[in-house]
């Protein structure tokens, strides 16, 4: 779907849906996920349809993912960090799973 024009200076590892991916250090998370082959990142609340990154600038709220336990965060506004754990496919966030102790 997408490819890199510029070779990254370094790599970090993020876990997406339990699988490790090596991504460019400092890259936008939604970009990293598209490069890793994830097109749909969540499902719509009412009809349950697949949704992916759309506006790329934080206004459409379609690229929502769970990041390190925090549900419905905008992947297009976050940069990848080493060790980041990302979960896709959420339709309605279950808060009980995300309450930090």
């Amino acid at each position: 779907m997408f490819r890199r024009l510029v070779e990254p200076a370094g790599h970090v590892t993020v876990t997406i849906d339990g699988r490790p991916f090596s991504v460019a250090a400092g890259e936008t998370l939604s970009t990293a996920m598209l490069l890793a082959g994830f097109a749909g990142l969540r499902r719509s609340a009412r009809l349950g349809r697949e949704r992916g990154p759309f506006c790329g600038m934080g206004v459409c709220f379609d690229c929502l993912v769970t990041i390190d336990g925090a549900a419905n965060r905008q992947a297009c506004l976050v940069r990848v960090r080493d060790g980041m754990a990302v979960q896709t496919g959420t339709r309605l966030a279950a808060l009980a799973d995300t309450v930090p102790e």
């Binding site: 970009t31 992916g52 759309f54 297009c76």
Partner: peptide, 24 residues
Amino acid sequence: TLPGVMTAGAAQTMLKADGVVPDG
């Protein structure tokens, strides 16, 4: 609303921020 449909602005942002372009 289908994944794979984005705005031109989004694609340009991916280009500027991360040097990433569409493939295929």
